[in-house]
Design a protein around this nucleic acid. Structure first.
Length: 510
RNA sequence: CGCGGGGUGGAGCAGCCAGGCAGCUCAUCGGGCCCAUAACCCGAAGGUCGCGGGUUCGAAUCCCGCCCCCGCAACCA
């Protein structure tokens, strides 16, 4: 039986169309999911949409549409990322689904009674924005958006007693019971916990929420506020609401499994909610915790933060239309550090596209295949030993990808590309052929090396990788697990290559 | 004294936690090759590793102080 592996992305608000920041997370999560699947695991990979927020209500009003209609349309735009970015997610969750409503209420009810209590919440509220402001956010005491004086509003809300879990959370994160990538985020969270955790509000009045959202169990005057209605998607996607066996049982609980694997992928902005609030909620409910959390940085555009006011927001759909899915995936995974903020610029994108993909992977593939075609009559010659230390290559590759260091993974792949290119230049097969000297061993090494390259590219650029495998005369559908495929010599002599007409990455014209 | 991240050849970054020849990608210059998508390979130039001090045989790396940039600043995801 395959080992279960759960991986989630965060769920974005649907009040705007998806930008490349979300695409970064989606591609990173997808690369990991594909890698784990390659390792033979049974991967439950979910993403979805956060539709309960007041922000969505406001956006719908602005668009002059009923809220449900509005979120339906926008959820679809996010779901489109599946095809736009070639995501391999197995599930999709919308927080307006009934199973999510049921599951969220179930989690609320499971929390210890003493952890949820009512308290007066008081704050500065702007009627125009319909949000509360912290005093320091105001400009001369006025709402920065509307230039009006916010009202002092007080209402009864439910609060979650996070303060009770301070010690436990510190231990869980500090002792590495939950692995946090990268380390710097772990330290940041520990520092945050050390400063003291305050209880947080988990509901809003029905009125203030415009009646939109999930009702608090047993109190119809209150609507759940973000934490219990959004973070819970990780459970409800697994049909947590069901009493009997469900994906929740097999992927989250995994009875009898020694080493559970439950992974959240998220952005730095929501780290504290996932590593503090969410864990606190799970602890209170007596449920098992995730096992790792990977926290990526944000994307800037030409060195600046993406924002509507700067009008520099980039949408993945357009990017993919221009450069192709795999080029976009490659940039996000290889040209940006997985652990820090990264920059996107058109100039750099084109630079990477040309040097790494056109001149690198693409050119190398046609180089090798055309020689097999020309000099070996399209047939893979007899086997020869490994010239490229693929054992060492895979060791580094796996070590890097398992800590989500996709930039290292891609760098490793580039090194293999260079090694293959260098070998060709040094061995000069065309010269050997002219002189009538043996070339079979060299061609086997090159084509088997190319197979390893394609294998390594599967999580990064799935379409390109499969394309190369097909050209090598292999069937990507009939692949074995990575531990078997990464052995040298899997490419059988006599295999007929199927060289494609089109080039892998066309050169940019302008 | 709020928190975090960053400041490394022209550009973008790795290296720092566990001190030991300053590395990668791109760009530039010179050479080679002709299998390949005018691609590829080799070589060269280019850096006071933000600044000042300290520890050490030895510091980009550890310690102290300072400057600059970017996020976040807690019921605002």
């Amino acid at each position: 039986m395959k080992k279960p592996y759960f991986l989630s992305l965060t769920i974005p608000y649907v009040n705007a169309s998806p930008h490349i920041g979300y695409a970064l997370e989606a591609v990173q999560g997808d690369a990991m999911a594909r890698y784990q699947r390659l390792c033979g695991k049974d991967v439950f990979f979910v993403f979805g949409t956060d539709e309960n927020s007041l922000k969505n209500v406001q956006a719908a009003q602005k668009a002059g549409k009923p809220v449900q209609e509005f979120v339906d349309e926008h959820a679809e735009a996010f779901r489109e990322l599946e095809t736009i970015l070639d995501l391999s997610n197995t599930h999709f969750i919308r927080t307006t689904e009934q199973r999510h409503v049921d599951g969220s209420q179930k989690l609320w009810n499971l929390c210890k009674k003493e952890d949820i209590y009512k308290k007066a919440y008081r704050g500065l509220y702007c009627v125009g924005c319909e949000i509360f402001y912290a005093p320091e956010e105001l400009e001369n005491g006025l709402c920065p958006e509307h230039q009006t004086r916010p009202d002092v509003v007080e209402e009864e809300n439910y609060f979650f007693r996070l303060s009770s879990y301070q010690k436990e959370l510190k231990q869980i994160i500090g002792d590495g019971l939950i692995k946090v990538y990268p380390d710097s985020r772990k330290n940041e969270m520990l520092a945050l916990i050390d400063k003291g955790l305050e209880d947080f509000s988990i509901s809003r009045s029905l009125e203030r929420a415009h009646g939109w959202g999930i009702p608090v169990p047993g109190d119809p005057s209150q609507i759940m506020y973000v934490w219990f209605d959004a973070l819970t998607n990780y459970l409800t996607a697994l049909d947590f609401h069901k009493e009997q066996s469900s994906p929740y049982t097999s992927y989250w609980v995994q009875p009898g499994e020694e080493k559970r694997e439950v992974i959240h992928v998220l952005g730095k902005g929501v780290a504290r909610f996932h590593l503090v609030y969410w864990l606190g909620m799970l602890l209170s409910a007596g449920l098992q915790l995730p096992t790792s959390e990977f926290i990526h940085g944000y994307i800037t555009v030409d060195g600046q933060k993406m924002s509507k006011s700067l009008n520099n927001v980039i949408h993945p759909k357009k990017l993919v239309e221009t450069y192709g899915i795999d080029a976009v995936r490659y940039y996000f995974l290889g040209a940006i550090s997985a652990y820090q903020d990264g920059d996107f610029s058109d100039v750099r994108f084109r630079e990477i596209y040309t040097s790494h993909l056109v001149n690198g992977v693409g050119n190398l593939t046609s180089r090798i295949l055309s020689m097999i075609e020309k000099y070996q009559n399209n047939l893979i010659p007899h086997k020869a030993d490994d010239l490229f230390d693929t054992v060492g290559f895979w060791k580094k590759y796996q070590e890097a990808i398992e800590r989500f260091a996709f930039h290292d993974v891609v760098h490793n792949i580039q090194t293999l590309v260079t090694a293959l290119d260098t070998t060709i230049s040094e061995e000069k097969p065309w010269e050997l052929v002219r002189k009538g000297q043996p070339v079979e061993a060299l061609f086997y090494r090159l084509s088997e090396g190319l197979r390893h390259l394609a294998l390594a590219l599967l999580p990064i650029m799935p379409q390109t990788a499969e394309n190369i495998l097909v050209q090598l005369g292999l069937d990507p559908k009939k692949m074995d697990v990575l531990s078997v495929e990464k052995e040298w010599g899997r490419l059988e002599p006599g295999t007929r290559i199927q060289r494609a007409e089109e080039v892998l990455f066309p050169r940019l014209t302008s």
